[in-house]
Design a protein around this nucleic acid. Structure first.
Lengths: 162, 162
DNA sequence: TAGATTTTAGTCAAAATGACCAGTATCTCC
DNA sequence: GGAGATACTGGTCATTTTGACTAAAATCTA
């Protein structure tokens, strides 16, 4: 969201895309595969790691692999004045995977993961009890149609002007 | 979603958590840091990579780092009979980062990324034009309150019974 | 064009890798 | 309760990779 975010360039993108196959390939392989000098790839990787352009590695874990096969969106309305309290509360709930503030009537849209519908109910209950949250509405995710990806976008960028 | 998903065990979780600090630490460091034999960590990592429990590495990239600072949810209603066509269409749009089917009146909830509001309009237009999609409604994300994470959940699992 | 930044290609000693192994521990299911 | 399967340990080996460092070439940019 911040416009001062580190911007990936073509080389970064190529490295990242190549890393998709195996995030732990030796730098040397990467380098020769991409036709770059080893030092270049090495410093790029270091820069990338500190750039803030990447989510933590654990963000790759699919909730289902943690026995959380049931996902849902919980939309919450809240007492605007207590926004920060609410956020702090949400942050404490492990089942809250993500939370965004969309334009429109829902103040917060919260992504949660649960073991089963029962557990989902428990989690939404917990959300409802966060300070400042006045109303919630839960909608279960029936199917993960397209799992989160950036590959297509990355490739598009690389195709634009080489 | 699938219950036949590979289930992480305590060791997997510890490895993944440790990998958060630096996804490319040498296996030896990991091993001694976790008090495991090198071979164990080595085979675990290999298994994890093939388990299907992880998203591709590029899923870590923040859209903002690709110049896509504007995100939104597009909810779409559709001609149910043409669901698969619609999905195929969506898959072709690079700006479509994710798509889920929630219970309720919206048939598909689509996460998109754009360079600016104008671009967002273009993308939502493109979605509207997918075969089978009858109506869409776009809601811009004003703030990324809690970026996607699984850390808390992972830690909770590790705390439950050691 | 001059100055700054990146990239290249090369060096080095130290460390990590993958592929083994046999021995032990742990699980699992009858 | 025990047999067999599976996973973990701690060890070896030759080969490769790493990080840290050069100096020179290439590229960007003001």
């Amino acid at each position: 969201m911040n416009s001062d975010t580190y911007q990936l360039d073509e080389t970064d993108r190529r490295i990242l895309l190549a890393l998709d196959a195996d995030p732990r390939v030796p730098i040397m392989m990467l380098a020769q595969q991409l036709g770059l000098a080893r030092g270049t790839v090495q410093s790029r990787l270091e820069r990338l790691a500190n750039s803030g352009a990447l989510r933590p590695n654990t963000a790759r874990i699919l909730p289902a692999a943690m026995g959380r096969g049931v996902s849902a969106f919980v939309s919450a309305e809240l007492d605007q004045a207590r926004l920060n309290e609410a956020i702090a509360g949400l942050r404490q709930i492990p089942e809250v995977l993500e939370c965004v503030a969309p334009a429109g009537d829902t103040d917060l849209l919260i992504r949660v993961a649960a073991t089963d519908p029962d557990d989902l109910y428990r989690v939404s209950e917990e959300i409802r009890l966060c300070p400042g949250i006045t109303r919630t509405s839960t909608s279960m995710i029936l199917r993960d149609v397209i799992p989160f990806r950036t590959t297509e976008l990355l490739r598009k960028l690389s195709g634009e002007k080489h």
